[in-house]
């Protein structure tokens, strides 16, 4: 009896240990990566780096056009992906949940979320750059990125809508509200924090995507900042890619600094998502 109890306890401890290492190992690898990049690049980041234009001299090169390009691009991406994504989620969740078509669409959306980003790049090149005649512009890049993040936005928005108890809707109907009134005045406000968090996290992913940008032909060097959605543009991942492949060591340091800026931008976006959620949650309840 005693030995079997001891064995069971040992197994318990072994399992806890395994679970703990599953947490610690990825964190360690992540810390190593971030630490390695930060060590190489952090010293390079100053105001001149953030506000300067690219240069052949690694020491005076800056990332302003790339940074502004990236920020504009994700702003437009969010503006495109949010309404379409939420609209699709509302339709699937509130109106078409039980239809066969909805089930097929649902499976497809889940699959689309796993499609490699370079495929979206090719789609963007074919549809937005060529067919719609946008050229290699910000709007074409942003529309491609919006397609890329859309499945995630739809899935997370549906999850958020699902967390609103059905009783809330029934209460609305009991008061004579139409379905749309119930959605607009009760369900959407309650689901908004979840929807926004999902959207921001999805869009934050888009800021680091390189493959679609390479495919649609974002530029490597521009001497100006984008002034409208139809401007040509470059983005941070393109600038980093360009620097990484240069022979001079100093450019690789610049690339590391660019990566640090990209990481910080992503962290800020994710932080914004959390803060927004907390704020909105307080307002609703």
């Amino acid at each position: 009896m005693l030995t079997s109890t001891r064995r069971r306890l040992l197994r318990e401890r072994l399992f806890v240990g395994l679970c703990a290492s599953a947490v610690v190992i990825p964190l360690l690898v992540l810390a190593l990566l971030v630490g390695h990049v930060a060590l190489a690049g952090l010293g390079r980041i100053d105001w001149a780096f953030l506000s300067g234009y690219p240069s052949r001299r690694a020491a005076t090169a800056g990332i302003l056009p790339a940074m502004v390009g990236s920020l504009y691009m994700i702003a437009i991406t969010a503006a495109l992906a949010l309404p379409v994504g939420v609209g699709a989620a509302i339709f699937l969740e509130e109106y078409g949940a039980r239809s066969r078509l909805a089930a097929i669409i649902e499976v497809n959306i889940a699959n689309l979320a796993g499609v490699p980003s370079i495929i979206y790049g090719m789609l963007g090149l074919g549809v937005f750059v060529r067919l719609m005649g946008f050229g290699r512009t910000l709007i074409a890049g942003a529309a491609t990125m919006a397609l890329l993040v859309l499945p995630v936005v739809i899935v997370s928005s549906r999850e958020a809508l699902r967390t609103v108890p059905y009783a809330m809707r029934e209460a609305c109907f009991g008061l004579g509200a139409t379905k749309w009134q119930a959605i607009r005045q009760v369900v959407l406000p309650m689901a908004a924090p979840g929807i926004l968090t999902g959207t921001i996290l999805a869009v934050a992913r888009a800021i680091g995507e390189t493959a679609p940008l390479v495919v649609i032909g974002a530029l490597a060097y521009v001497t100006f900042l984008p002034t409208s959605p139809t401007s040509q543009f470059t983005a941070l991942p393109m600038q980093i890619l360009n620097w990484v492949s240069r022979p001079q060591e100093a450019f690789v340091v610049n690339a590391a600094a660019g990566i640090v800026v990209l990481l910080i931008t992503m962290l800020v976006l994710n932080l914004a998502a959390i803060l927004l959620r907390n704020r909105l949650q307080k307002r609703v309840y």
Binding site: A220, T223, N242
Partner: peptide, 8 residues
């Protein structure tokens, strides 16, 4: 003049 350079 605005200069744009791509790398294809």
């Amino acid at each position: 003049a605005r200069v744009t350079i791509g790398v294809s």
